[in-house]
Amino acid sequence: MTPPPRVRPQRAPQRRRSRARTIVPLAIAAWAVLEIWLLIVVAGATSGLTVFLLIIGGMVLGASAVKRAGRSAWRNLTAQVQAAQAQAGQRPEDTTPPAAGTGRNGLAMLGGLLLIIPGFISDAVGLLLLLPPTRKLIGKALDRLTSRALAARPAAPADPGSVGDLFQQARDANEQFRIHRPDGKVIQGEVVDRD
């Protein structure tokens, strides 16, 4: 008797790695090396204590900027919720809408976070994001980029469903997985009632 022919398992074709997954880690590594080199150069030109004090000052300034941006975002959110409730008739008192030009809290918070990160390049970018004129210019550029990206994107379905629908779909998918699992507790079959 001859043994059955050996069947080799088929391998799934390898997916190519995207450019972003290749470029982003390299860019982060280059940025970190550049930051360290710049810290060494500044420490050599001045002193290590000066660099240390600059880093600590940047962290303190960044923390206060993040705190301020967070408070401003919270005030805007509560004002918008109160205005929406007043429009819906749930709360009759007069509310004031948020002031114009306060929608750049995310950029201010990002600037504060960049100041917290040790390094002079991140501090320079963080300071640019904290200054109102440059924050406004960067915000407008980001708005244009996102509007172009959304215009080029195909339309999404009108109603994706509620969060409860998503949880129900996840439960259904989990049950289907359990049914088709060989060691699952659910046994497929037919129920026969003999009466």
Rank of each mutant, 00 (worst) to 15 (best):
Pro4Phe: 09
Gln10Phe: 02
Arg11Ile: 02
Arg11Cys: 01
Arg11Glu: 14
Ala12Gly: 07
Gln14Lys: 14
Arg17Asp: 04
Ala20His: 08
Arg21Leu: 13
Arg21Val: 11
Ile23Pro: 02
Val24Thr: 14
Ala27Thr: 08
Ala27Gln: 03
Ile28Tyr: 04
Ala29Asp: 03
Ala30Met: 13
Ala32Pro: 02
Val33Ala: 15
Glu35Met: 13
Glu35Ser: 06
Ile36Ala: 15
Trp37Tyr: 04
Leu39Pro: 02
Ile40Lys: 05
Ile40Ser: 03
Ala43Arg: 10
Gly44Ser: 12
Thr46Asn: 08
Ser47Thr: 12
Gly48Glu: 08
Gly48Phe: 13
Phe52Trp: 15
Phe52Asp: 05
Leu53Thr: 09
Leu54Pro: 01
Leu54Asn: 02
Ile56Thr: 13
Gly58Arg: 04
Met59Tyr: 02
Val60Gln: 06
Leu61Gly: 03
Ala65Met: 08
Arg68Gln: 12
Arg71Ser: 05
Arg71Val: 00
Arg75Met: 09
Arg75Leu: 12
Thr78His: 09
Gln87Lys: 15
Gly89Val: 05
Gln90Met: 07
Glu93Leu: 11
Asp94Leu: 12
Thr95Asp: 01
Thr96Met: 05
Pro97Ile: 02
Asn105Thr: 11
Gly106Pro: 03
Met109His: 00
Gly111Leu: 02
Gly112Phe: 04
Leu113Gln: 05
Ile116His: 01
Ile117Gln: 01
Ile121Asp: 02
Leu130Val: 08
Pro132Ile: 15
Pro133Val: 11
Thr134Cys: 07
Thr134His: 05
Thr134Arg: 03
Leu137Tyr: 06
Lys140Pro: 02
Ala141Glu: 05
Asp143Met: 10
Asp143Tyr: 10
Arg144Met: 07
Leu145Pro: 00
Thr146Asn: 11
Leu150Gly: 01
Ala151Val: 05
Ala151Met: 09
Ala152Asp: 12
Arg153Trp: 10
Pro154Cys: 09
Ala156Thr: 12
Pro157Val: 14
Pro157Gly: 10
Ala158Trp: 08
Gly164Pro: 00
Asp165Cys: 02
Asp165Asn: 04
Phe167Asp: 15
Ala170Tyr: 10
Asp172Trp: 06
Asn174Tyr: 09
Phe177Pro: 01
Pro182His: 14
Pro182Thr: 13
Gly184Gln: 10
Val186Asp: 13
Val186Ala: 12
Val186Gly: 04
Gln188Met: 04
Gly189Tyr: 11
Asp193Gly: 02
Asp193Gln: 09
